[in-house]
């Protein structure tokens, strides 16, 4: 019985732990975007090609408090590398980095009101007004 309980506990842990740490890329609910592939997400956040699958321009948002985790999960890079990457594109006049917002709350409000906005959140914090287009496992 104890063993069964331990197995159950383990199963629960393995089910819930990754979900706790996952990052969800989100758009406004009902904006007509179903899913993004990982390369779509890289193109949008790294400024290579900012278009959503429904044809709308994509407006990426960075959440300062989650940024390090997000880029680690998306492209396995630290913030110094991300800054160096943007320094090259900004000072050659090729592209601009995502708009920065301070908190997840601010991000949620902005994404919920703009069908072009693409943000990211801890996957536990996604509300009804947002639609998850990609989950990044950490």
């Amino acid at each position: 019985m104890i063993r069964v309980r331990a197995c159950l506990l383990l199963a629960l842990l393995t089910l819930t732990l990754p979900a706790m740490a996952d990052i969800a890329i989100v758009v406004k609910a009902g904006s007509g975007v179903g899913q993004l592939t990982r390369s779509d997400a890289v193109n949008i956040f790294m400024g290579r090609y900012r278009k959503l699958p429904n044809g709308n321009p994509a407006l990426p948002l960075d959440v300062v408090s989650l940024k390090a985790r997000f880029y680690r999960a998306l492209v396995n890079k630290n913030l110094a590398e991300i800054n160096a990457y943007w320094a090259r594109l900004v000072f050659s006049g090729e592209a601009s980095p995502p708009q920065q917002v301070a908190t997840a709350t601010e991000m949620r409000q902005l994404v919920a009101h703009n069908p072009s906005a693409v943000g990211y959140l801890d996957s536990r914090e996604v509300g009804d007004d947002l639609h998850v287009v990609l989950i990044l496992n950490e």
């Binding site: 090609y49 900012r50 278009k51 321009p57 994509a58 800054n83 160096a84 990457y85 320094a87 090259r88 594109l89 000072f91 050659s92 006049g93």
Partner: peptide
């Protein structure tokens, strides 16, 4: 006008090969 198209006019970096137009931005490399 669209994410797939960009036009620029004026004084531009000489993008003659990869990284050439950011060669003074030491932080970038």
């Amino acid at each position: 006008p669209d994410p797939a198209l960009q036009l620029r006019a004026g004084r531009l970096g000489w993008d003659v090969f990869q990284l050439a137009d950011s060669r003074y931005v030491g932080y970038a490399y």
